[in-house]
Write a protein that binds this DNA or RNA. Structure first.
Lengths: 207, 207, 207, 207
DNA sequence: CATGAATGAGCATTCATTCAT
DNA sequence: GATGAATGAATGCTCATTCAT
């Protein structure tokens, strides 16, 4: 491999390794993942990995960090600047299928589930930095909707959880079943259905 | 360990090992699980494991089989002999929290997610024997509810998925977050909320 | 298995185990031989082996002893009471093919060769009790033949070795090659040829 | 151990391991041989063995191949370009003691005998590539000697076998008895005697 | 006496990590 | 910076031996 002399070149090399690592960790889990394979996937030698990451575990932690954090911030901002519950819900219904199918989020989720016990600290941080923040943003959105009279519910927190449950469901599904299977879940239709049920379920009762 | 000379005693020993194995596989995933640990958890020596199971993989497969199959049959029968959508839904709302908290299903699910790529055949069978059968039973229940005029929907299949999504959500949650955390999710409240939203969302429109 | 209460019954049981053990040791060598297999071949349980033999090694040593010693005594007497070199040679040429094909001698030889380093004491004893005694008897027979004027040689010891070499050769051959092969060596013809060559090679020169 | 970066250095390392492996397999047989010991004998770590050979069995097979094949070709050429039966016989009588004492052939033979049943394919190949070719070359040499009128026999094949029998005999002897014993067989004298007996035994009868 | 379930030391193999080149 | 040969701790599995039944 060519030498990476500039800082930019080094960052690129880091990215390659992180990308390769995510794929390997995703496919095999932390302990079955082989540094050899990661090196091959990244197109570098095994020794090079250790120039960029102190250990297998450090690489793992960096991958989680690199992939998870940016995603939340995006979602958070989307919901905070919401211009009304229904329009945001509508937007979410269109964005979430993409998040599930095209981002690395389901991969990271799969990895974290599989190795949850080996990395309690990572799980805890992920919970705080990703789950809690997402859940809080969603809860606020629900509460705002109530206050605005758009919707009604007594239990904003659980509504937020139930809104997100199909995301988890479909993320797991795509990651666990689809790689070994032909039929893909129709996420568009699923989230369409979800949206409609939510709209009806949360509709304020006519007086 | 005492000798297991009778068939019954041997079955008991098998159960012990399966139980110990599930815990170990659950906590560490297949490849990090150590036969030594399983033996210690089961209170037997390493060699004894191999009297009952041909290999680590065979033990793994037997555990999945032993734990997964019986559960489905229970669920299936519950839904098939349903005496009306709402009463069954009510029953499910009460049973599912127990299933999530007290059965081994979430453990098995966690293990299968983590090692999905290593055991595609198991995943495929699990999908067919557990997921598909559960989904079919639920879909039928929804359709019957429509035909009986209790509920209305155009998309019974996705409704079935959305009904089950919170089970997946909470199974993952309990298994991933709760072991490292103090606050437990209030499943009673969550499924209560889920039930109410479903009832409203599926209520046939007044003319 | 039935109990062996009488001494005779116990001896029979011993014989069965020795026979089974020889076959197993012959086929796999000492260290690959499994006590389990020996037990199965003998039609007894594993524990029973230890009622008759203190350990795998003790069983091995007893087998060698049981099989090797009687054989030599037979050969020895055959040669000592020889009534002339040529008539004894003739008898040997007829007996040796049988020894190679039908006795356990080649099996024992194969086992000893394979495990020579693991059991130097056994090898040494075998050399003294079997090889040396056989070699001495043969050497004496050659010397008597010389003294009687039947044959002539300056090097009785090496002649004795060369007389026995084809026995070793064919024992190894039958044991190593024939089990995995269709064509069997024609020992009759081989020893016939050997006899004729010896007769010519040892014939006293005409003056 | 120093790094073997060049191809030549790697070949050397391979040679070291093969040499160490032959000694270990020779002394203990395949199944008792320990990879640990081979590594120590070769002056490398256990892991290094697996950089050069895929498994214990692969190492074993490579050793047999590496050691056996070249030897035959040497012998074969020696006999084919023979300039007369007696002169070749004379040469053989001088070369064979060296082959027995100084080459690895007896070691390989000992190993193959001990593990014949575990590696039937190796034994079969060895028979074809080494034994049969050697036997054929020798038989041709005998036949040519007959045609040239130098010698006479009706049974060239068995004569060839009887010519080689003392090689087997002394190979086994040196390998089985001498390591645990003080007196060494005088191979010079033995083959000298063998040669003289052969010359006399095969001499065409005077009319 | 006979059995076979239980044991645990022993060994082949893997793989994260190091470091000479 | 980059490489990949070398290392050795870790782990699945085997099998001689024991001993409760």
């Amino acid at each position: 491999m060519k030498r990476a002399n500039s800082e930019a070149a080094k960052d690129l090399r880091r990215e390659q390794i992180i990308h390769a690592g995510l794929d390997e960790f995703f496919e095999r889990g932390f302990s079955s993942a082989k540094m050899d394979n990661i090196a091959r996937r990244a197109g570098v030698s095994k020794g090079t990995l250790y120039l960029y990451f102190a250990s297998k575990e450090a690489l793992f932690l960096d991958i989680i960090k690199a992939v998870a954090i940016p995603r939340v911030e995006m979602m958070e901002s989307m919901m905070v600047q919401s211009s009304g519950f229904f329009s945001t819900l509508n937007m979410l219904s269109q964005q979430l299928p993409l998040l599930v199918r095209q981002s690395s989020v389901p991969k990271v989720a799969k990895v974290l589930i599989g190795d949850a016990f080996a990395f309690p600290a990572v799980v805890r941080e992920y919970r705080q930095q990703v789950i809690e923040r997402g859940h809080r943003a969603l809860t606020i959105m629900v509460r705002k909707g109530c206050e605005a009279g758009e919707i009604h519910t007594e239990d904003a927190e659980n509504v937020a959880r139930l809104m997100i449950a199909p995301v988890i469901f479909s993320a797991i599904w795509t990651v666990v079943f689809e790689p070994h299977d032909d039929e893909a879940l129709d996420l568009q239709a699923l989230f369409q259905c979800h949206q409609q049920m939510l709209m009806k379920a949360l509709r304020p009762e006519a007086p």
